[in-house]
């Protein structure tokens, strides 16, 4: 099969960018979307042009490295998967596909489709952990945790930090990312000690990174490859407000 592509090309953060037309032929339906882009790049390199810069690593939907906005939807229209998990089978011969980078002020563009998501790391450094030095832990089974709580924590912990929530949000808000982390630890006894400070500090860092506020569009949940619920945002708000009064 063959597809026509409109791909955002931008040489650097301050360079002007535009959509450029390409087409790729002889696509195997089993090819992944990124492999289709690989094929395009190989064509470009061989004809002496610069390949399209995009990122990926695990190519199986767990590292959170890949991330493109495909026809206006972060990680494509299938839902519940990352860009690298999309197969070309999903498209029809002759389709035109527009590919854009994750756009947000907090995710500065590096080149073409590559953006800088280090804001997430800075948010995590403000409390996305349980402060526990190596070597000081008690036996793991001393503290039973209700299975439901462990499962709820796991639901929130499934976040791969890809940033699609920000990309998809009409406000470019990072609430789902932060919400998931804050609520993960509220479910676990280990998370209790730092519960208030975590919520306060992570939200503060989020605000200072230039993400937008949340308008509850829930578009983030729809594009989240791990289908993390926006109820985590709700929970974060409870945590934060409680912390404001109890800290």
């Amino acid at each position: 099969m063959k597809v026509n592509l409109k791909i955002w090309r931008q040489a650097g953060p301050d360079a002007p960018g535009k959509l450029v037309d390409y087409s790729v032929e002889n696509i195997d339906p089993s090819q992944s979307f990124l492999e289709m882009l690989d094929t395009l790049n190989e064509q470009l390199v061989k004809s002496g042009q610069e390949p399209v810069a995009f990122e990926s690593d695990c190519r199986e939907g767990i590292c959170g490295n890949c991330g493109l906005v495909i026809n206006g939807i972060a990680h494509g229209s299938k839902g519940g998967c990352t860009t690298c998990e999309i197969r070309m089978r999903q498209y029809n011969d002759g389709d035109t596909i527009t590919v854009e980078p994750f756009r947000a002020k907090a995710f500065t563009l590096i080149k073409d489709l590559v953006v800088n998501r280090s804001a997430f790391d800075r948010i995590m450094s403000k409390g996305g952990y349980v402060a526990m030095n190596a070597g000081s832990a008690q036996d793991a089974n001393l503290q039973p945790i209700h299975q439901d709580a462990a499962e709820a924590a796991m639901d929130a912990a499934a976040c791969i930090g890809c940033g699609a929530c920000v990309a998809a949000c009409p406000n470019a808000s990072a609430s789902l990312f932060v919400g998931a982390k804050v609520s993960q630890y509220t479910w676990l006894p280990q998370g209790q000690v730092e519960r208030s400070t975590r919520a306060l500090k992570m939200v503060k860092q989020m605000d200072s990174e230039g993400f937008g506020d949340c308008s509850n569009h829930a578009e983030c949940e729809a594009v989240c490859p791990k289908e993390i619920s926006i109820a985590n945002i709700s929970r974060m708000r409870r945590e934060f407000t409680k912390a404001l009064f109890t800290r």
Binding site: A134, Q147, M154, Q184
Partner: peptide
Amino acid sequence: NSIIDQCVAQGVPFAREYGGTL
């Protein structure tokens, strides 16, 4: 064994039984 202790203390959500044990 210390690894499991350490990871659980860090809040790694390992699978659990109904009784709450790992």
